[in-house]
Design a protein around this nucleic acid. Sequence first.
DNA 1: CTTGACTCGATATCTAGGTATAGGGTTTAT
DNA 2: ATAAACCCTATACCTAGATATCGAGTCAAG
Lengths: 141, 141
Amino acid sequence: MKSSLTIGQTAKKAGVNIQTLRYYEGRGLLLANARTEAGYRLYSEESVQRLRFIKHAQELGFSLSEIERLLKLRVKRPNQCEKIRKEVEARLKVVKDKILSLRSIEKTLENLRRACQTRKISSDCPILKSLDNAKTKGESQ
Amino acid sequence: MKSSLTIGQTAKKAGVNIQTLRYYEGRGLLLANARTEAGYRLYSEESVQRLRFIKHAQELGFSLSEIERLLKLRVKRPNQCEKIRKEVEARLKVVKDKILSLRSIEKTLENLRRACQTRKISSDCPILKSLDNAKTKGESQ
DNA sequence: CTTGACTCGATATCTAGGTATAGGGTTTAT
DNA sequence: ATAAACCCTATACCTAGATATCGAGTCAAG
């Protein structure tokens, strides 16, 4: 017996708004599993999981289109393995870069915490240096 | 001799739009160091660094107000150490949580990459499970 | 068999974070 | 001394990602 949730139950479980589900459906990000006779959307537990993934990923700085790409990743047929592997590789790079940046901020904050404990004054902004491996999109002076 | 950059030079160096600088000034996120007689904004190298930090932090899912909090963190007077330490602790938790989530996604992607190489079919969506330690924020409307 | 909670689609509105434009002054290189 | 390339303020507009509202159909409980 597979669970069938109404849109309201699903939204509540995932902690999102009902219209958000309809909005995601419009974007093709989360489709209902089925509809009742009357046209009511029906969802499953996996829909809830999917919703939570989306919300979580947004907090990590992924846009809805990036999240779509992440959610599409799976090996359906062996012959498209190479294509998928390339895509996985690309997503992986983005994720690893984010982790590196965050670890750099983390280290700075930990230093700052230590400075607090030893009551050492830091008049300049310590966190500024943390991400200064910038991409330098522009050029030199 | 400290460098003085015009708004255009600053924007170019940081790879952002000129109006973005004016917008940030309005938000109190990045003030010009000074103004010329004619009212032209003047920036320093540190402004460029600050801009890059902002842009980078946005990609990690921080909002401008969160970024403001991060940039305000410094020990100005020893008597407010405890207050700052608490704030650092809070920011640190957010950062560490993000790292954990990303590491979980990273692991899933690495598994998927391995599955690709061994041509193992995965009909369901493997990435879904990665963040299933959800927070269940509560309810909707 | 009705009433209140729920759902539908369609459309309008909102917030965050910019980006563009208009009308006018300033600097710089020719 | 004039045109190109800046800069100024103010205001309008834009995109992403939701939320709210409207008028109407549906369902469950008394």
